[in-house]
Amino acid sequence: MSEQIYFEDVSEGMELPVEVRNPTPRQLVQYAGASGDFYEIHYDRNFAQSTGLKDIIIHGALKNAMLGAYVTGWAGPAGELRRLTVQYRGMDYPDEPITAKGHVSRVYQEGQSNLVDCTVWLENPEGQQTTPGTATVHLPSRSD
């Protein structure tokens, strides 16, 4: 179980811990099965190359899920994800490390909610942000 981060612990500019993931072709097949997205560019190299890609590519929706896992992991068991946006700007390939990074962009209260906006993204081995996004989470207060 991950540790809980509290609203009082967070300030604008604070960085989220960097996480590196190593998606494999096997994971893309798992994701195809679990999501029902069987488009061949994600597991059939010949097919992918016939469409002009250099190799099979990671599902955009899997990258969206990775950013979701990154943010909810950081927000801890009592954190609640309220919003998650993601843009697919570049292709990512399996068998290459993909790095999740982020920082806190805004800390505010709205109604009963302690909200934190984060800027998050996935980076390829060349350091390009292939998958930028934003997230809003509610964090518990130490005085709850």
């Binding site: 179980m1 993931r21 998606p23 994971q27 798992q30 994701y31 099965g33 679990a34 999501s35 899997l62 899920a65 990775m66 979701g68 896992a69 909810t72 992991g73 068991p77």
Partner: peptide
Amino acid sequence: GHVARFAEAIGDDNPA
């Protein structure tokens, strides 16, 4: 079972 398989596929071991 579908939820558990999906979580496994995205590589998220959150017990939730």
